[in-house]
Nucleic acid binder design. Structure first.
Length: 743
DNA sequence: ACGTGTAAACC
DNA sequence: GGTTTACA
């Protein structure tokens, strides 16, 4: 038996008969199709008579499996309990066996006899990576037999490493020609493929030729990654169905004889909001990532997906399409797995009893103050860094440590909960290295000289930030595997205490509060130096026992009046410029996803002009320049020459088009699209241009971006009004004489 | 398979 | 005043 030694990266892993297919890429970019034997296990616990019956049933299933007495740590109690370990020899049988046990359980009438299942609802790649201590994109050395069977894997990499490398990937970019509009929501356009710096447009040819050209492109370049725009909901399904119809092969997969895996689209209701997940097309031995169908790609680029895949041990294609919540849950499950903690199948712990007075106190969330209205100079900002995760680590907040059976004296402020002092919780143990890794990336980012390296570190730290934020959110989510509402309440209770402590400290030092919200303070004492702020931050950190950082001093900071209550400012809508020249924008048009790019561009340009102002007088004297800028944009609008794409407003549907009661613009356009045969699911985003806001016939008020043509014009007056609003937030009361009113 | 509260814009 | 969407 010849034996080859390979060095390289784990690229893709999925179950095949008797084990896992493992695709490996070596430093020269060569791909290796390997096999690793693997038999996944799950655990069953519960009353022994019940357990015996169930186990004797599954042993009669006629599937190769082994049942062995074993033990594991129960998550909530921390006690070691006896369980039966069921090992399924063929991974392809695994889901079947688990399902049998679950259906058997559901048939039981007597609920008190219900069995507990553990480690049973993980995906096979996750189970494989957890049990073999490997992870996606891990660099390792592999001993391979002559049939591609893996004999030995030596890991030369760690998920917690910050200086890892990514294999050399050949990337094919796949999209429809032109602007990035959902292909279902516009007319037909030719396919555009870009690879190795060349762009190919497949245009004006038959379906057959399209498939043939696409196949030859795949054969010629053999890409590792197909990076598409709308590949999940449109391009791949169309290619696949034409190939099927014409009886042609379509070699999207590297694994021969495997069909492309399809996941159906779905809309689901989650806490009063409809979320839409587009259908997905996943490949075997090759990655397909739709940049329009990935939260992580759109917020952190590919580096964030790689970082998350390595830490969560979820394969790259799946990670790109899943939520950060699923990612962090997988990281937590991995930690539990390594410590022999049994991973609960479903959350069964009922919420602890809460009295009415507790209810009033505990459900308050973070503190929010009403900011001081208007224009301010010399305001300093202090932010608690990763406040919620720091609190969870510092106070040992975790579902199994909150209201433990032992430490009744270790009370959470305000609310009646207490926390364990004896056992370190899973969540803090998971968070500590995550917080540290993000700190490291932020430091590396500052030190890096190469801008490309800087970008990579920035994307990775930003991915970890999403992980940290979600960990807090998940504590309050009723179906979270490792979450508990009481833990959520404890975190916000501590956060309020910290902010109040910080507030009274700065006020005692003679600072005036301009604004404070959750983890951030904006304060002023005329003439305070940066060094004095740094000293103040140290003092607060010492008192509060969690780190607060000095962010900078604002040359100016403006809280515009609320539109519904002009006497008050709103906490979520402001803009300012630090002495460093950096701007901070919150809640204004330029930050909103439903603002047309034309308006965004105009507002950002006006803010850019204002960012030169160092104080009130300068701001006031620059305002005429802003007015000039505004007029330039206004004239462009009036000329009628602004492209529709720049005027498009994008919004998410909250219901099916026919269910809208009011003829809002989004309802009008959703119905227009539906009439054109576009299938729209709640949660999907649509884009439209306002054609005539006051048209008597609702259908004339707005048109879908993808179907609007030169016969239509846009509503100049309406867009001018939007532009004026974008200007207005920049004009503080008392300085407004320079602003131009349009009407 | 992410929370609650709030603002704002429209019909 | 109700409905709808978006943001922190």
């Amino acid at each position: 038996m010849t034996r080859k030694i390979l060095k390289g990266w784990i690229f893709d892993v999925y179950p095949v008969y008797g084990g896992m297919r493992l695709w490996f890429i070596d430093p020269s970019g060569q791909k290796h199709r390997l096999f690793d034997s693997f038999s996944p296990s799950f655990y069953v616990g519960g009353p022994s008579s019940q357990l015996k019956k169930t186990l004797s049933f599954i042993s009669r299933l006629n599937l190769p499996l082994r049942i062995k007495p074993s033990e594991g740590i129960e998550f909530y109690s921390g006690e070691t309990i006896p369980v039966a370990r069921v090992t399924v020899f063929n991974p392809l049988d695994y889901a079947k066996v688990v399902k049998w046990v679950i259906t058997l359980e559901n048939k039981k009438e007597n609920r008190s006899l219900t069995l507990n299942l553990y480690n049973c609802d993980l995906s096979l790649p996750q189970l494989y990576f957890f049990s073999k201590d490997l992870f996606p994109l891990a660099f390792c050395e592999i001993g391979v037999g002559d049939k591609g069977e893996i004999q030995k894997i030596e890991l030369m990499d760690l998920p917690w490493s910050t200086d890892y490398t990514i294999p050399p990937l050949s990337v094919m970019h796949l999209k429809m020609e032109g602007e990035s509009i959902h292909p279902d929501q516009c007319g037909p356009r030719p396919l555009e493929i870009e690879i190795e710096g060349t762009t190919h447009v497949i245009e004006g040819v038959s379906e057959r030729e399209t498939i043939e050209q696409f196949n030859s492109m795949l054969a010629r370049y053999d890409p590792d990654l197909i990076l598409s725009e709308w590949g999940d909901p449109c391009i791949l399904p169309q290619l696949i169905s034409s190939a099927e119809r014409l009886g042609l092969p379509l070699n999207l997969n590297r694994e021969p004889s495997r069909k492309v895996h399809s996941r159906k689209e779905q809309s689901y209701f989650s806490y009063g909001r409809i979320v839409h997940k587009a259908q997905a097309r996943l490949l075997f031995g090759r990655w397909h990532i739709d940049v329009c169908n990935s939260f992580l790609v759109s917020h952190t680029e590919l580096e964030g997906v790689f970082e998350f895949a390595r830490l969560s041990k979820i394969p790259v294609q799946q990670m790109a399409r899943t939520s950060t919540g699923t990612g962090i849950t997988s990281m937590q499950m991995d930690l539990a797995f390594q410590e022999n903690i049994l991973i609960p199948w479903r959350k069964r712990e009922p919420e602890g009893f809460k009295s009415a007075s507790q209810l009033l106190l505990s459900d308050k969330g973070g503190l929010t103050y009403t900011p001081k209205l208007g224009f301010h100079e010399e305001v300093g900002e202090l932010d608690f860094a990763s406040m919620y995760p720091s609190i969870m680590v510092k106070y040992n907040i975790s579902p199994e440590t909150i209201n433990c059976r032992c430490c009744f004296d270790n009370l959470v402020p305000e609310i009646g909960h207490h926390l364990c002092k004896k056992r370190k919780g899973l969540i803090p143990r998971f968070l500590k290295p995550l917080l540290d890794k993000r700190t490291q990336y932020k430091r590396l980012m500052k030190e890096a000289e190469d801008p490309e390296q800087k970008r990579i570190y920035d994307e990775r730290q930003s991915a970890l930030k999403w992980g940290l934020v979600t960990t807090f959110g998940y504590q309050g989510y009723k179906n979270a595997r490792f979450g508990k509402i009481e833990a959520h309440e404890a975190i916000t209770a501590y956060s309020r205490e910290k902010l109040l402590q910080a507030k009274s400290l700065v006020e005692a030092e003679g600072f005036e509060m301009i604004h404070a919200i959750v983890d951030s303070l904006m304060i002023r004492k005329w003439g305070t130096s940066e060094a004095a702020y740094e000293a103040l931050a140290l003092k607060i950190s010492a008192t509060c026992e969690i780190p607060i950082a000095f962010e900078g001093i604002f040359n100016w900071l403006h809280f515009p009046p609320s539109k519904s209550n002009p006497g008050l400012a709103t906490p979520g809508r402001y803009l300012g410029v630090y002495r460093s020249g950096k701007t901070k924008l919150r809640g204004i048009e330029a930050r909103r996803s439903d603002t047309p790019v034309f308006i965004k561009r105009a507002q950002l340009e006006m803010i850019e002009i204002l960012s030169a102002a160092r104080n009130r007088e300068a701001y006031q004297s620059i305002l005429p320049q802003v007015t000039d800028c505004f007029e330039r944009y206004r004239d462009k609008l009036r000329s009628g020459q602004v492209p529709f794409f720049d005027l498009a407003i994008s919004k998410a549907l909250s219901k099916a088009p026919s269910e809208y009661q009011k003829a809002s613009l989004i309802a009008i356009v959703a119905n227009e699209l539906a009439a054109r045969g576009v299938r729209l699911m709640p949660g999907q985003t649509i884009s439209y241009v306002i054609t005539e806001m006051k048209a008597r016939v609702p259908a004339d008020r707005a048109r879908a971006l993808g179907f609007i043509d030169g016969a239509w014009g846009y509503d100049v007056e309406k867009y001018e009004a939007l532009l004026s609003e974008a200007l207005e937030v920049l004009c503080p009361v008392g300085m407004s004489t320079h602003s131009v009113r349009v009407g």
